[in-house]
Nucleic acid binder design. Structure first.
Length: 491
RNA sequence: CGGGGUGUAGCUUAGUCCGGUUAAAGUGCGCGUCUGGGGGGCGCGAGAUCGGAGGUUCGAAUCCUCUCACCCCGACCA
C-alpha cells in the first residue's frame, strides 16, 4: 500500500505533494500522459465534496442534466474569443473505427472511417449547451434556465500535475440563461458565494473573492469572478470561477426570447465551475510532513478505531467495546472505521491513518479495559488524551467540530501572515522570493503593465478583490488613479 | 516545445561507466511461528523473457543505432 515517510515540505514542496498523493492512496498516474486514476480513498473525498456542492446548487434552485462529451467542431468556432482560448488544447476525434493491421501487428485506424466533421472532446460545454438552449428558449416564460452538470472534460495541457492540472478532469459546470443582465450578474455573484462558503465551511480553506482582469478572463466571458486560495508554499491557486457571459453566447448561437411586449431579446448567460483541482487545494492547505490532514466535514473516515491486543481473547473483549462505539457513532452520523485487521500491527495503523489524514483515532488496549478509558488522538495537533468510555461519543463530536474550526483558523492565520502590501515592483519581487503569498499593490489597469510585472516577478494578478476599490499610484508606471489588486505566483 | 531524468519482480530501486556462470536487495505477497500501547522478529516459499526493435560479440540489463512511454523543471494555460 504505502511506504514510509514523506519528503518534508520545506525540503521540496512539489515532491512532498506528489509523494503524498501517491502514498495516501489518493491517485496515481495512468499510462496516458497527464491522466490520472483517482483511487477509492481519493474519490471518496471528491464524492463528499460533490455531495455538499450538489446540495448547495439544488438549494439555490439548480437542476442537474447531462450534455454529450463530443462537440461538433463547427460549434466551437461560433464564439470568437471562446475558440481562441481553447483551440490549442482540444482533443479531436477524427475516426470512428479501427481495423486489424495487414501485417498482424495489432489494430490501426481505419482510413475509411473518417468522420465528415471532426468531433471535439469537450474542454467545457458552453457551445453545445447554448446550441441546445436555442431550442429550449422562445419566451420569457422559459427563463431562467438553471442547470448544472457533473462531467469530465479534456484539456490537452502542456504540463500536468495530479489534481492541479490533468488532461482529463472531473468537474461541475453550471450554465444559466436569464432575461436580464442584472439577473445574470446576480446569479454569477450568487454562485461565487456558494463556492466561497463551500471552501470555507467544508474545506476549511479561506478564499479571496474578486474579479479577474481582462487578461485572465475566461474565453468568452464579460466578467470572470473567482475565489483564490493560498497554499502552504505561498503560491496561489484559483479554486473556482463564476463567469458573467453577457450576451456573447446568446448572440453566437442566436438564442433569443420574446419578452412580455413580444419583443425579441438575446438571453443573458452565466457559467461557473469547480473541479477536482479542489482536491489539490485541500491537500496543500492543511497537510503536514506526516501526511494528509483532512477537515472532518470532508473526511471519508472521521474516526478510526485501532485495537491493541495480545491474543484472541483480548481482541474479542476489545471488539465488544469497539463494536458498541461504532454503532453509537454511526447513529450520530459519524463516519467510523474499526480496523481489526490482524495482519497489521497498531503502530503501523497509527502511521497509516495519520498519512491518510483521518481526523480522530481511538486506540483501545487492555489497559483501557481495566481503566474504563480509550485513547483519543487528534490528527491536526497530533495530541492524545484519555477519555472515559461513557464520554467517547460526546467527546468525538466536540473534537470533530473543534478540528474543523481549528484548521480553518490556522489557515486564516497563515493567509493573514502571508498577505503583504508592496509599493514597488522591487519590493513585491523581494516579498515573493522570500515568502510567496498574496501581495496587494496598485496597478494602472493596462494589459501592458500587467504583463510587464509578470515578466519581472512571475506574479500574476489573481483578482481585483471584492469590496471598495482603493486608488493609488501604479507600482510600475507610477501613474495615478491605479487600483489595488492582488498579485501572487500561482499554480 | 526547451532542459533534466527514468524505464530491471506487484511497488521502490541496485547492477549499466569497465560485457562473462543461475540478474541482486528492500518492501509487498503466501505459509509457519513468536509477537502486539508508534511503521515487529525469525524461518520457508512464489514472483523478472531487464520498455520495444534491430545490430556488434563466442557471450548483452550492460556497447551501438533506432524507437516508444512516462516523470520532473521551465515556457503555455478556462
Amino acid at each position: 500500500m504505502s511506504g514510509k515517510g514523506l519528503v518534508s515540505r520545506s525540503e521540496d514542496f512539489s515532491k512532498w505533494y506528489n509523494e503524498l498523493v501517491a502514498k495516501a492512496d489518493l491517485a496515481e498516474h495512468s499510462d496516458v500522459r497527464g491522466c490520472m486514476i483517482i483511487k477509492p480513498y481519493g474519490f471518496a473525498i471528491w464524492e463528499n465534496m460533490k455531495k455538499e456542492l450538489d446540495r448547495m446548487f439544488k438549494e439555490t434552485g439548480h437542476q442537474n442534466a447531462y450534455f454529450p462529451l463530443f462537440i461538433p467542431k463547427s460549434y466551437l468556432s461560433k464564439e470568437a474569443n471562446h475558440v481562441e482560448g481553447f483551440a490549442k488544447e482540444c482533443a479531436v476525434v477524427t475516426h470512428y473505427r479501427l481495423k486489424n493491421a495487414d501485417d498482424g501487428s495489432g489494430v490501426v485506424v481505419d482510413p475509411d472511417a473518417k468522420l465528415d466533421e471532426e468531433l471535439i472532446v469537450r474542454p467545457t460545454s458552453e457551445t453545445i449547451i447554448w446550441n441546445t438552449y436555442k431550442k429550449w428558449i422562445q419566451s420569457y416564460r422559459d427563463l431562467p434556465i438553471l442547470i448544472n452538470q457533473w462531467a469530465n472534460v479534456v484539456r490537452w495541457e502542456m504540463r500536468t500535475r495530479l489534481f492541479l492540472r490533468t488532461s482529463e478532469f472531473l468537474w461541475q459546470e453550471g450554465h444559466t440563461a436569464h432575461q436580464t443582465k442584472d439577473e445574470a450578474v446576480v446569479e454569477t455573484e450568487k454562485m461565487l458565494n456558494v463556492y466561497a462558503s463551500f471552501a470555507e465551511e467544508f474545506m476549511a480553506m479561506p478564499v479571496l473573492k474578486g474579479v479577474k482582469t481582462e487578461n485572465e478572463r475566461f474565453a468568452g466571458a464579460e466578467e470572470t469572478y473567482c475565489i483564490e486560495a493560498l497554499m502552504q508554499d505561498g503560491k496561489a491557486l484559483q479554486a473556482g470561477t463564476s463567469h458573467f457571459l453577457g450576451q456573447n453566447f446568446a448572440k453566437a448561437f442566436d438564442v433569443t426570447f420574446a419578452d412580455k411586449t413580444g419583443k425579441k431579446n438575446h438571453v443573458w448567460a452565466t457559467s461557473w465551475g469547480v473541479s477536482t483541482r479542489l482536491m489539490g487545494a485541500l491537500i496543500m492547505s492543511h497537510s503536514d510532513d506526516k501526511g494528509l490532514v483532512l477537515p472532518p466535514k470532508l473526511a471519508p473516515i472521521q474516526v478510526a478505531i485501532v485495537p491493541i491486543y495480545k491474543g484472541q481473547e483480548q481482541l474479542s473483549q476489545i471488539s465488544k467495546l469497539a463494536d458498541k462505539l461504532v454503532d453509537q457513532l454511526r447513529a450520530e452520523g459519524v463516519a467510523v472505521k474499526y480496523d481489526d485487521d490482524d495482519a497489521k500491527k497498531p503502530g503501523w495503523k497509527f502511521a497509516e491513518y495519520e498519512l491518510k489524514g483521518v481526523p480522530l483515532r481511538i486506540a483501545i488496549g487492555p489497559k483501557d479495559l481495566e481503566k474504563g478509558t480509550v485513547e483519543l488522538a487528534r490528527r491536526d495537533t497530533l495530541t492524545k488524551q484519555f477519555v472515559k468510555q461513557e464520554d467517547v461519543i460526546d467527546t468525538v463530536q466536540t473534537l470533530l467540530n473543534q478540528i474543523q474550526e481549528a484548521l480553518f483558523n490556522k489557515a486564516i492565520s497563515f493567509n493573514k501572515a502571508n498577505s503583504y502590501e508592496a509599493s514597488s515592483v522591487e519590493e513585491m519581487n523581494e516579498i515573493l522570493n522570500k515568502n510567496g503569498g498574496f501581495v496587494y499593490a496598485f496597478w494602472d489597469g493596462t494589459k501592458e503593465t500587467e504583463l510587464k510585472i509578470k515578466d519581472l516577478t512571475k506574479a500574476t494578478i489573481r483578482c481585483v478583490p471584492e469590496g471598495e476599490i482603493e486608488k493609488g499610484n501604479c507600482i510600475l508606471t507610477g501613474s495615478a488613479n491605479a487600483i489595488k489588486v492582488v498579485f501572487a505566483r500561482a499554480y
